[in-house]
Design a protein around this nucleic acid. Structure first.
Length: 226
DNA sequence: GCGACAG
DNA sequence: ATCTTGTCGC
């Protein structure tokens, strides 16, 4: 048996997946890009979520939001969404502008059941999402050429579910996969267009930095800097 | 029994 | 992800 928590979660994923839509995302019409990230305080259930928004393609910061909360769901590979989506939704609710696309720290369809945290967040929020993970969850791949922008397919059950993208020479690649309302080609192009001199795409890098800053401020003053 | 295993 | 110090290298 898998346990009641996982059983219930799996059924919810299956239901939500019916609304999943993968289609080209016209980058020429994108005017804003956002990124979300979550960090934890020790082994406790205190979580910090951040949302950062940038204009596109100039990538000028336009808005930032952070929230602190608790999570009840434990970390189980394949069910990350149930641990992070609630606090992310809370954070998104406080944002003035709805981004045209959201980058998520985790996989999209490159998932055991084709419905990772990026897809889950996309379906429940209605916002196009792209998953960007630092490690693979499932699938096989050949290492991409050591040149920025080069990528190789991440295959799951014979299907190309994502891209193993080299965002910086000499550094481990990242795993890009469509979340919701986008496809692999659009996702890779978008990610490359927001990647600078670091391995992690700029929006996600800043969302993560902010999440770390929030945790530090929370421990020091008991409040959030935003 | 032995790996693999997002954050 | 988080817990942790120094250290090697551009």
């Amino acid at each position: 048996m898998a346990g009641p928590l996982v059983e219930g979660a799996r059924k919810i994923q299956e239901r939500l997946k019916r609304s999943l839509r993968l289609l080209p995302l016209p980058l020429e019409r994108i005017r804003s890009v956002g990124a979300v990230d979550v960090s934890y305080l020790g082994t406790r259930d205190t979580v910090f979520a951040t949302v950062v928004l940038f204009s596109y393609p100039d990538l000028v910061p336009v808005e930032k939001r952070a929230r602190a909360g608790v999570t009840d769901f434990p970390y189980i590979p394949g069910y990350l969404a149930f641990r992070e989506v609630p606090i992310i939704l809370d954070t998104l609710a406080g944002v003035e502008i709805t981004p045209d696309v959201l980058l998520v720290d985790g996989h999209g369809i490159a998932h055991p059941r084709g419905f990772g945290v990026a897809s889950h967040l996309g379906v429940v929020s209605g916002i196009p999402t792209i998953g960007v993970a630092k490690k693979k969850l499932v699938g096989t791949f050949d290492p991409p050429p050591d040149e920025k922008g080069k990528w190789t397919p991440l295959r799951v059950n014979g299907e190309v579910a994502g891209a193993v993208l080299r965002t910086r020479p000499g550094v481990k690649p990242v795993f890009v996969s469509p979340g919701h309302l986008t496809d692999l080609e659009s996702s890779v192009k978008l990610v490359i267009s927001v990647t600078g001199k670091y391995r992690i795409p700029e929006p996600l890098r800043q969302a993560h930095n902010l999440t770390v800053l929030c945790r530090a401020e929370w421990k020091r003053t008991g409040r959030l800097p935003l």
